[in-house]
């Protein structure tokens, strides 16, 4: 039986994207692909309420506009494609520590928290950024090419961690990906974003 739609987007319009309606059930993974510049990142940013937009997003019964911005972004978390760091040490970016099992699952040693950010590879940073976001325990995830810089092994590890998270927490996932094989693996439904509109594939 289908639960109530967990993440609902209604008549969302931002810059040249939209209006877009989309409902993602709890525990469901929806993928979006499309050409560069088609507005996939803009759409995710608008859902995370980082850009001004028309329309609204709901998590269960809670409207985005009814929560303060930071509270909304903690529950509907955006993971950007290019991870950003502002302290010297990796561990200083984790307010609530990090789950050791998750670290291991992504192939990162415990000592990674003591690494200097500047000395991490792009792929290491991307996996650490995913953990940083997951540690906030979001109910919905907006993922902008979460495996964009990863090799095949790391990509599979990230996919299985996200899959486990989705099932355990009944999280709703909106996943932007360029890789048709990845979409095949992870998505329950997928859409093409073209000309500011979502086009269903299956």
């Amino acid at each position: 039986m289908q639960a109530l739609p967990s993440l609902r987007i209604q008549q969302l319009v931002t810059l040249h994207v939209g209006p877009i309606d989309l409902a993602i059930a709890a525990g469901e993974c929806v993928c979006i692909h499309g050409a560069s510049g088609s507005g996939k990142s803009l759409l995710l940013r608008a859902i995370a309420d980082l850009d001004a937009h028309r329309g609204d997003a709901h998590l269960d019964a809670t409207a985005c506009s009814s929560l303060p911005g930071p509270a909304w972004r903690r529950t509907v978390a955006l993971l950007v494609a290019e991870s950003q760091w502002w302290c010297e040490r990796v561990g200083d970016h984790f307010d609530h520590g990090v789950d050791a099992a998750w670290m291991e699952q992504l192939g990162l040693p415990d000592a990674a928290l003591d690494w200097q950010v500047a000395r991490c590879s792009t792929g290491e940073r991307q996996r650490l950024a995913l953990l940083r976001t997951l540690m906030q325990a979001p109910a919905a995830l907006l993922l902008d090419e979460p495996t964009g810089n990863l090799d095949q092994d790391s990509t599979r590890r990230v996919e299985s961690l996200l899959d486990a998270y989705r099932q355990q927490r009944q999280a709703a996932l909106l996943w932007v990906s360029h890789d048709p094989a990845q979409i095949e693996r992870v998505a329950h439904r997928s859409y093409l974003l073209d000309n500011g509109r979502l086009h269903g594939l299956r």
Binding site: L50, P70, A77, Q84, W86
Partner: peptide, 22 residues
């Protein structure tokens, strides 16, 4: 210059004071 960093911090749910503190 640090726009991406500030927006990443906002995306992690930090409030504006913390995101701009540096």
């Amino acid at each position: 210059q640090r726009r991406q960093i500030i927006e990443s911090r906002l995306a992690l749910g930090q409030d504006w004071q913390r995101a701009i503190s540096d």
